[in-house]
Nucleic acid binder design. Structure first.
Lengths: 205, 205
DNA sequence: TTTTAATCGTTCATAATTTCACGATTGATA
DNA sequence: TATCAATCGTGAAATTATGAACGATTAAAA
């Protein structure tokens, strides 16, 4: 199967989440039309996304919730659990450590790092806080896949550099600042300010 | 001038932020090439985005940082300050209340709402926490533009409904769940889980 | 003054994404 | 059994976004 575009991957992950919720409500059959109403995406787009995998739907009936979920997950995640390492245990970092969405499955926070001596050694939600100097060692030990930047923007570039040095090749940056990294490293950003202003401007014009 | 696509708006907001940072470092001239290196976007795309506004660059020189910033801001933001209302003062909500990125300019948190009696009446970072029942009144009083959902996913739909009822027509949803709203209301989501898994899958394949 | 090199703005071509249109399949109904 | 309505899967068309190419302009250097 060919590599899927990132946008498709994002949508498929949304389908997985939606199917999970449907299964919990004991809705074991679902049509592209219904998924469309829940997610706000068009039904054709949903069918086309799903058709990347295999013919699994039945005309007149729809998809079996659990079969579809399993098929999508098998392709995208293959039972992997993503290991996260968090850099920065301030307000935002602490919220991420306590984020209930991670504690169900698929994502596991394996370690947190900070420079504040008062925080080091503590455990939040089962995750231990280490001094940032130990990042290379700890990241190898726990096989962290993705590093999260949750430090003040003044420090985000140096933290990013250190993450790369520690062996991380995927970074999610919460700081409102662009970081430069070697080409082999992937960075994505979650920037609250830009998200909010974009919603404002887009609706405004 | 024609309405800009959302993707363009998002990029332009990134330029504005970048130009701000450059000005702080006293770099008062910048070329599309340099902006490209900082942001990771291609220089052609940057020039094309900028050309939506007016001819403001000089060949061989680049753009005047402050002029360009002013031009982009004038078009997109027009000196508006975006007023936010936060729903849910848990871990994530508290982090948002303390988020330093907002306290500079352009975005102002005007009120927070919660159902927990122990939180109501408190002030975090200058923002008062009200009982959620008072949302319609407070939102009108402070002219909130955008509502933020930071409640557990089990409650996000009811909160969204109540936001719409209170007069909000733009919602930023941090809960990992799709919410349905009337067509005139715009919802965007920031979903940590999907962001992380998408980064994982995309790099993985 | 002329030449040179950097950089802008724009056109055109390419690629990616979304939407449309429709045939095929299925379960329910007459 | 034959018909009907719902829904899937998909090829083609339309739209949107990206990238390449290049002339035009400018400041600096020769």
């Amino acid at each position: 199967m060919k590599k899927l575009p990132r946008k498709t991957i994002t949508r498929v992950l949304l389908y997985i989440r939606t199917l999970e919720a449907l299964a919990k409500e004991k809705r074991f059959l679902v049509s592209s039309k219904q998924l469309s109403e829940i997610t706000g995406l068009s039904d054709v787009k949903i069918r086309k996304d799903i058709s990347n995998f295999k013919k699994i739907g039945k005309p007149r009936v729809g998809y079996k919730t659990l079969d579809l979920k399993r098929t999508l997950e098998n392709y995208l995640l293959q039972n992997n659990v993503v290991h996260l390492a968090l850099f920065g245990v301030g307000n935002l970092g602490s919220a991420i450590l306590s984020y209930p969405g991670f504690h169900q499955n698929k994502i596991k926070l394996v370690a947190a790092f900070d420079i504040d001596r008062r925080k080091i050694g503590k455990t939040i939600n089962g995750v231990k806080i280490y001094p940032v100097e130990r990042a290379p060692e700890i990241i190898k030990k726990y096989h962290a896949d993705i590093g999260i930047i949750a430090v003040p923007k003044e420090h985000c570039q140096e933290v990013a550099d250190y993450m790369v040095l520690s062996g991380l090749s995927r970074i999610l940056n919460f700081a409102p600042y662009s970081v430069s990294v070697p080409a082999k490293v992937q960075v994505r950003s979650i920037d609250f300010t830009i998200k909010i202003l974009s919603l404002f401007c887009d609706a405004h014009k």
